[in-house]
Design a binder for these strands. Structure first.
Lengths: 155, 155
DNA sequence: TGATTACTGCAAATGATTTGCAACAAGCGA
DNA sequence: TCGCTTGTTGCAAATCATTTGCAGTAATCA
């Protein structure tokens, strides 16, 4: 049994919640993904194992995970207004999105700490969190000669 | 006459476009704002000068500006799925959003260059653009004793 | 001063996500 | 193991930001 399932099970128990077949399926599917799926993508995959599964249930489960701080959500500038769900939370990491294939790569850096401090000093503000998003072409798409679409990056 | 109006006028001319009363009003209103307004916010302000103005027209004008690379759009994690329009483009800058009052502060840093290069080397990718977003409390909200809402930052 | 056609306002459409509700089914206690 | 309670699901309809089709309006050019 995966970590997510275990963790959610524990938390559900604490509040009188229930571990349903659908929830287990969605969590297990999510755990197989290293990418940052959209709700639709996750739904499509999970549905292969249970064709009766409903998109609402996927959203409800993702929101539950979000509440429990087990995933985070993010809208990349590359995409319209669609959320992507990040199961790697809460490890601090940043993102790169390929503007051609929309794949997401996570990376770490400690530069952000300094940037935060600089900002706090300069604006007398309190910075809680911060994230970096890079846009460009991943190895594969670069090799396939995908042009860098002008005007599509994070501007 | 503001810079935006002038610039758009020039580009319209080149494609047989027209400078209308509505466009001028929207551009002039946008120029008075240092903040990153939503379409609704800009609409509300512009409407004070022309109550017949329509929200569609605001959107269409903003998209025109976007196409012409005179504003950029961004969805902050703090907000649902609502775009904010950034007239400071194309100067390279980054953002801080106050989680309490939703105000946006722009700032510059050169750290991003190194981060891009590090990433390119490590993943053999091509990075075109990159942006940093910080979340926290601005001076005012911090002084008013606003608690840092847990679970609302950019996670 | 027209004539041409880009632009506007309106209402309806779109797309992602949310929600109300009746039927269903976990998980508890007997 | 069997009910019961009530949390959860599937469905359809609602919501919210944004977009689009269309008929009427108005910039701009000759």
């Amino acid at each position: 049994m995966g970590k997510l399932v275990q963790e959610i099970n524990k938390r559900l128990r604490a509040h009188g919640g229930r571990m349903t077949i659908q929830r287990r399926l969605i969590l297990e599917t999510l755990e197989t993904l290293t990418n940052h799926p959209t709700a639709e993508e996750l739904f499509a995959l999970a549905r292969q194992r249970d064709p009766a599964l409903n998109l609402s249930t996927v959203y409800r489960t993702l929101r539950l995970l979000e509440q429990e701080d087990l995933v985070s959500t993010r809208i990349f500038n590359e995409e319209r207004r669609q959320e992507r769900f990040d199961p790697a939370y809460p490890s601090e990491h940043h993102h790169f999105m390929c503007t051609a294939c929309k794949s997401v790569i996570e990376f770490e850096t400690d530069s952000i700490g300094q940037i935060k401090m600089q900002f706090e000093r300069r604006f007398d503000a309190r910075v809680e969190t911060g994230s970096i998003v890079l846009y460009g072409l991943c190895v594969q798409c670069r090799q396939e000669g995908n042009p860098t679409k002008p005007g599509t990056g994070d501007r």
